[in-house]
Amino acid sequence: MDEKKYQQLEQQITPKPRYLKNCILAFVVGGFICFIGQFVALFYISFFDFTERTASNPTVATMIFISMLLTGFGYYKKIAQVGGAGSAVPITGFGNAMISAAIEHRSEGYVLGVGGNMFKLAGSVILYGVFSAFVVALIKTILVGLGVVSW
C-alpha cells in the first residue's frame, strides 16, 4: 500500500473535528471568561481608584490568579477539553500554560525545573509578542519620522 492511498483512507476513517460544535463552545467559554473579567474590572473601577482604561491591569492579574486556582485543582484542563480555544486564547490560558509547566517540573527542583521550564509553552507567546511589537513600533516610528503618518 502506498503512502497517498493510505493517507486518503486515514482521512476517510478518522472522524473530522466537529467544527460548528467546537466553535460554539469556544464562543461560549471564551465569551464567559471575558464576561467574568468585566465583573472584575467593574469591581476595581467601583471600589478602587481605577478608570476603565487602567482597570485592565489588575483585571488581568486577577484572572491569572483565578487561572492558577483552576489549574492547581485540575479544573482548567477539563474546561479546556470542552472549550478548546475558548479557554486557550484568553489570558487565563496563557497563565495556565505557565502555571501548569511550573507545577509539572517541580520534581526537577526550583531552579532548573520550575525556573527552566516555566516558559517552555508560554515563552513563544512572549517572544512573538515582543518581536512583532518591536517591528510594528519601529516601522511606525520611522514612518512618522518621514512624515508619512502621524501618531
Binding site: 478518522t14 492547581g72 484542563k77 501548569s100 507545577i103 509539572e104
Partner: peptide, 17 residues
Amino acid sequence: ERQFRYPLQYGSQKGAT
C-alpha cells in the same frame, strides 16, 4: 505525558483520535 506531550494540567483540547 509530560515527556511526549504537555504538562498534565495544561489545558489543550484533545481530538477524537
